[in-house]
């Protein structure tokens, strides 16, 4: 593999930098808005560099709601959901991809169609169920309704199907079948998919506002997005600088997770698959 011509490399970087722009711009705007004093947030011409840096915004934002509490709750709830989703999705995907049983195709179709249902359709039924269990305003109430994921099942089934049958035959010779095969072969080989799914689920549930707002009533179990919601004003203008300051510390764990996962992502892509 020879070195690419300089011009080609330069072009590649140029395209990448241009693509980076629309992604970084909102993050940059969030950061500078977060440190602007109130009277600099709205100006006739956009201010790209703040005149004065008001770091006090972070303290004000942090103290506007019990964010420390919310942080812990968000971590507990999101971790719980992702753990359960990984377990149930992996097992379901294994059954759908590798086992033969009556009605498998129809079952898969039903799971697929579950992906198109928005939460607003199922929320009343779920809410009444939780109420009967006495699970309103509890961690279970936030986690259990999301214990299974149609999207995760679909994604992992596709990944498991992509593993060549030859590998399973080889494993069978070594007496490695069933769950043991799943754990020792399919899961490690599908690591990029698992990681991608984890990140998607992480973002979705870390940011979920609607469900926690409906089923919780006390700060003891409420999560971060509810704290963010308190900054949004419908009737008059939102305090954007405080909202952005709060968004910054609420979204920081996600940004860090992506940053860490990114290196791992590339390496796991490079090690997957059979040698051709």
């Amino acid at each position: 593999m020879g070195a690419k011509p300089l011009i080609l490399r330069a072009l590649t970087y140029l395209v990448l930098i241009l693509a980076l722009f629309p992604i970084l711009l909102p993050i940059y705007w969030m950061i500078i808005t977060a440190v602007k004093p109130k009277d600099e947030v709205f100006t006739f011409t956009p201010e790209w560099v703040p005149h004065t840096v008001a770091l006090s915004n972070f303290g004000l934002a942090w103290n506007s709601a019990p964010f420390g509490h919310y942080f812990i709750n968000s971590v507990v709830v999101t971790t719980g959901i992702i753990f359960l989703q990984l377990v149930t999705s992996t097992l379901a995907a294994y059954a759908l991809a590798r086992l033969r049983f009556f009605g498998r195709g129809v079952l898969f179709l039903i799971i697929l169609s579950a992906m198109i249902l928005p939460i607003q359709i199922t929320f009343l039924a779920n809410f009444v169920t939780l109420k009967n269990f006495g699970w309103l305003d509890t961690y279970q109430g936030l986690v259990i309704p999301f214990a299974a994921s149609a999207f995760g099942t679909f994604l992992l089934r596709q990944a498991f199907l992509a593993v060549p049958p030859a590998l399973e035959d080889a494993a069978r010779l070594d007496r490695c079948t069933g769950l043991s095969f799943l754990w020792n072969f399919l899961v490690p080989l599908s690591r990029p998919t698992l990681l991608a799914f984890t990140l998607v689920a992480l973002v979705a549930h870390w940011n979920d506002y609607f469900w926690p707002l409906i089923v919780t009533n006390t700060d003891a179990v409420r999560t971060l997005p509810i704290g963010l919601g308190m900054f949004i004003a419908q009737e008059v203008t939102t305090d954007w600088n405080l909202l952005m300051a709060a968004t910054l510390f609420v979204s920081a764990p996600l940004l860090i997770a992506f940053f860490v996962a990114q290196r791992y992502f590339i390496s796991s892509f490079m090690h997957s698959g059979l040698k051709g």
């Binding site: 308190m230 900054f231 008059v236 909202l243």
Partner: peptide
């Protein structure tokens, strides 16, 4: 409405739901 709330004898619990529609900090 609050099965979890076990008020002391003679104490009445009132659950109060409120929205915030004007800017941050008002919940406080």
């Amino acid at each position: 409405s609050q099965p979890t709330a076990a008020p002391a004898a003679g104490k009445v619990t009132v659950t109060y739901w409120f929205p915030v529609d004007l800017g941050g900090g008002l919940a406080k």
